[in-house]
Design a protein around this nucleic acid. Structure first.
Lengths: 198, 198
DNA sequence: TCGATTATGGACTGAACGGTACATAATTGG
DNA sequence: CCAATTATGTACCGTTCAGTCCATAATCGA
């Protein structure tokens, strides 16, 4: 009864990745539909047909980025040592912020901090930072209880300060700061909150 | 011999302030000439005649912002106590990042980290962060020599880490974080690098 | 009061924008 | 091989963009 449709000539996830990269590099307003057409290789009509209008494409790209970053926070609880877990989390975020190729920094930060991005960007950024902060709070509490971290300052305060530092990492990475300097910053911070021999 | 021209009906600095606020709130691409016309109250022709095209207006706004921020870094050397000076600098930057009214965060960070801003923005941001970093390095060195700061970590590394944290302050302020939480973050950091009783 | 000069307001221009319409191509069940 | 359905490419639409033009207004020396 029902006919069979012509199949798509592209992989949706791949297209979404290219769209994400383009939005990440040039921002929401700095990316035109023609830019997306050029980056994905699709035709205009196919782009609209498959992913919707510009704001919807952007929302899908946000979702995809969030899915990527969600995996990072998952690995925190694996390590029995809170210090090692914190170090691993911080180093992983630095590595993600300054890849060998591709846009630097944090997509959500860059779009939310910049000009007029759709609400989806700010909402996703707020939720991401909230999750990051909660993970850090749990981690620092664990480190204080185990004696790995200095107990002279409030655990939650230290965790929130770490969350702020990580926003700075993403921002400076975006601005082109060398990866080595970002690493130095987090190692210095680690030395301050969790001195090995104490 | 020479005739006398019709006088301007506006104050150039005031117009520049309004333009700066508009760019700060909506970004470079998110601000149209009509937005600037509405914000300044000037006519199109007057705007172009007095300040030049969009990129030039933006450049002037950047200059004006830099002039404002330059004053902040000047006050660092006044205080004989390095700890007090650092505390004052950090608190001042937090206050500037979360004003009672007007755009939040750092204008240069927001434009440089976001999408496609003119090169003037990125250059000014790079110079600003460089100046901030040098001021922090001098300050932390002074604090270590006087014994006010912990000497267990390298002074320059601590200073650079502080610079990164301040970028995070500006970014999270922009994202709407309450001023009290930003203050808590820097007080926590101060407690870590410069414990009063040590 | 006239003339030289600059400021102002409004209309205008060509280009780029986001989004759509439509004809055509590709697919498989019948 | 036809019908039904979706994908694709192209041309197109109305809007907004940055920037310009031009007629007019305002100023003060001569």
């Amino acid at each position: 009864m029902k006919g069979v449709a012509r199949p798509r000539e592209f992989d949706e996830d791949e297209v979404l990745d290219r769209a994400l990269t383009t939005f990440w590099e040039h921002g929401y307003e700095g990316t035109s539909i023609d830019d997306l057409v050029a980056a994905t290789g699709l035709g205009r009509a196919s782009l609209y047909g498959a992913l919707g209008d510009k704001e919807r494409i952007f929302g899908r790209a946000v979702e995809r980025y969030c899915a990527r970053m969600g995996d990072v926070l998952q690995t925190v609880d694996d390590d029995p040592s809170a210090r090692a877990a914190l170090g691993r989390l911080l180093r992983m975020l630095v590595t993600k912020s300054s890849p060998r190729s591709g846009p630097r920094g944090c997509f959500l930060l860059s779009t939310a901090v910049g000009g007029d991005a759709p609400r989806a960007a700010r909402d996703a950024y707020a939720e991401y930072t909230s999750r990051l902060e909660r993970a850090l709070i749990a981690l620092v509490r664990r480190g204080q209880e185990s004696g790995e971290f200095t107990q002279e300052v409030d655990a939650d305060a230290v965790a929130r300060m770490l969350a702020v530092l990580l926003q700075g990492i993403a921002a400076t990475a975006r601005a082109g700061r060398a990866k080595a300097q970002l690493e130095a910053a987090i190692e210095t911070m680690l030395a301050l909150v969790a001195r090995p021999g104490r």
